[in-house]
Nucleic acid binder design. Structure first.
Lengths: 152, 152
DNA sequence: TCTTAAACTTGACAATGTAAAAACAAAGTA
DNA sequence: TACTTTGTTTTTACATTGTCAAGTTTAAGA
């Protein structure tokens, strides 16, 4: 996706199209996968366009709020970000920590029908599946099968 | 639940029944609700039985592994623990951070049927619902209703 | 070009979690 | 009951992740 288009996307989402936001969004769209803020800071530095850590935190927060990025909380201070068009979930391996996308049946938020009769409004349901990936199989089995997609 | 019984529970779960484990497990059963490690350290200190932070981390990790505690990752370095008999999920208010239990349709792990055709084994599916609680309602509504249970 | 509100940078700091080694204690056994 | 073994706890230091606040810079509209 060319810079102009990224620029347009940002504006359409109600955000100012700054160099920093364009860089982060462009990077995530280009490389794909799940990345922590620290990852992003390093990748940007390596690409010759270093941004401050605080800026990256602000940018991913803004882009997530605008719906351009998805945030996956895969436990204990591990927040990962990705540029994705469709709402989906994540599998996390208990052994090696690998994160794998898991398609969502509905594909749009809030995905799950929450039980009715609750005193609050839900706009999103995030599911984290845990278990052991193919490489780490050990103890605990509940079902098995064959592969689909895999990121980072 | 008397100390003897806590003791027995621990042994049955394959853990040594140490004073520290008994204290933490007993506390969580007695007070109920969701608590961070820091919470627990303070509560224990207040009750005149101080434990080191590291010990509390070890204990909750061991008890969670043994199935006596549930861990709820409610985002960005917020790991909460609770003593619960049945598997369930959590709602987190985007505004005030309040955590509310949400019953799970099945009540046992792994709760959700994951999409078939995946190259890994799932033993647990944790769902985090996000939105706004009754007190914080603002913008975003997707449905509403009446209350059930509420903790911490 | 000029103006202004929004965004970025910097540096210090808070919160959360982990590593390693030494002291200690639970549980089984003699 | 005393002994032994092995797992647990404690301490200290540190790594990681995220936040605050003040000052500077910049995007976007007039």
């Amino acid at each position: 996706m060319p810079t102009n288009e990224l620029h347009t996307r940002l504006r359409e989402s109600g955000l100012r199209a700054t160099r920093q936001r364009t860089l982060v969004y462009g990077l995530l769209r280009r490389v794909g996968g799940h990345h922590s803020v620290d990852d992003l800071v390093c990748l940007l530095a390596d690409s010759g366009e270093p941004l401050s850590r605080m800026t990256v935190y602000n940018v991913v927060s803004d882009l997530t709020g605008a719906g351009l990025l998805m945030q996956a909380d895969v436990g204990a201070g591990r927040a990962l970000y990705e540029a994705s068009e469709t709402w989906h979930h994540h599998f996390v391996c208990r052994s090696c920590g690998t994160v794998i996308d898991v398609p969502c049946a509905r594909g749009t938020k809030p995905c799950l029908d929450a039980p009715s009769g609750l005193e609050f409004s839900i706009d999103e349901a995030q599911v984290i599946y845990r278990g052991f990936c193919h490489g780490c199989r050990a103890g605990a089995h509940s079902f098995e099968a064959r592969s689909t997609e895999r990121h980072t």
